[in-house]
Simulated assay, not measured.
Amino acid sequence: MQQRQTVKGAFSLTNPAVRAWIYQILAVVVVVAFGGYILHNTLTNLSNRGITSGFGFLHDSAGFGIVQHLIPFEQGDTYGRVFIVGLLNTLLVSALCIVFASLLGFFIGLSRLSDNWLLRKLSTIYIETFRNIPPLLQIFFWYFAVLRNLPGPRQAVNAFDVAFLSNRGLYMPTPLMGEGATASLAAFIIAVLASVILFRINRRHQMATGELRRSWPWIILLLIVLPGGAQLVFGAAIHWDLPVLRGFNFRGGMVLIPELAALTLALSVYTSTFIAEVIRSGIQSVPFGQHEAARSLGLPNPVTLNQVILPQAMRVIIPPLTSQYLNIVKNSSLAAAIGYPDMVSLFAGSVLNQTGQAIETIAITMSVYLVISLGISFLMNIYNRRKALVER
């Protein structure tokens, strides 16, 4: 009898766990019902207006060209290829900004902690200035006030007849695969593997005997001799397509268009200010006793920073640094303001206007940014777990 009452009490509404499960089930039902209503309402409205839904439009021909494309693209290619071009352009500007903002932010963050008064004050002015100007205004500044005021192609800044800088962009040589490309790549891979093996052998020898063997002269020799010998035997690995002025513009080579340069400069400078503060706060979170202990051992400042301070500071730096990388990807959508052909400008702009598939194009664009952001978070979380303290 007592056992029956216990079981009955376990499933009673007076039990907090039972009430919690009921509330969660009701919440799921309400959310699913609301989503079903929105979907049904959307499909009904589309049907009443004669608007077809689906992703079949991706196979249709696009009636526009794209200035910046990392893969071959011509006017008349499909919208599916437009999607790939926009995705690659978004990944390109995001990767460039992440690299440049990280390097610049690391340098500025260290400068704020420098003993040099002038360097410390200049870095502070840099942070307080660019951090408080909206990124869109910085993009407009670099694009309209700086890059668009460069000389035309005929008066372009010439760098040894190899690279040319004008208001049309920066034209540079394009590397093309040569006859010995495969052999040179194989030789380079062999040189890298041999260098890793040599480094590990010398490291084990040092740990066993205390005798230091320098690996870098032999590693440099391997990386130069093996690929160089492969090119002598099998032919050149790379040929260069140089830009040449023809008519009113350059032909050949590859171009860094002003839109990409302005976006990269603006987002790198803007985000580097936040990364600099992340670096500074991470270093200052390390107890000062660690600095004193390193000095008492006679370690120079660069060694103290690389071997003692930064490994401990990274545990504080990585989480907010991940947020800044995600902000770079999301802020790259501002490229539409100056016409850079990224996902927003191409897919949520040109493709949407031509096809009228608003739901599909917006859904694809949102999914792209979601997947990129989740991928960055996944990789940074893996790195964060490697740097985290492990209790044994």
Rank of each mutant, 00 (worst) to 15 (best):
Q231D: 05
P72Y: 04
V162F: 14
P319R: 05
V308D: 07
A181T: 11
E391K: 09
A337D: 15
V32Y: 06
L176F: 14
Q24D: 13
V29G: 09
T6M: 10
Q24H: 04
M172R: 12
F107V: 03
A163C: 10
L256P: 00
W240A: 02
V255Q: 09
I224Q: 07
A237T: 05
S281A: 15
L165S: 07
V29C: 10
I279H: 11
V278I: 13
D60I: 01
V303S: 11
L58S: 00
I127F: 15
G36S: 03
L91Q: 04
I108G: 01
G180W: 14
L147V: 07
N132K: 11
S296H: 08
M254F: 10
A20K: 09
L256V: 11
M366P: 04
A348Y: 14
R392P: 01
A293I: 07
L70D: 12
P16S: 03
G76S: 11
N353R: 06
R295K: 09
E259L: 12
V368W: 02
I382F: 14
F141E: 02
A388T: 13
G235I: 05
N116R: 12
A294Q: 07
F130P: 07
Y383V: 06
Y325M: 14
D161Q: 11
N353V: 06
M172T: 14
S53T: 05
I25V: 13
H59F: 02
L334Q: 04
V146W: 15
G229Y: 11
I382Q: 13
I197H: 05
V18W: 06
N132Y: 15
S373A: 13
S111E: 02
H239K: 12
S296A: 15
G375N: 02
V99W: 05
Y171Q: 10
M177T: 15
V371D: 01
F378M: 08
T271W: 00
L267I: 08
V225Q: 05
I219F: 09
P134H: 09
H40E: 02
V269S: 04
A237M: 07
G282R: 08
V196N: 07
G349F: 14
T90M: 04
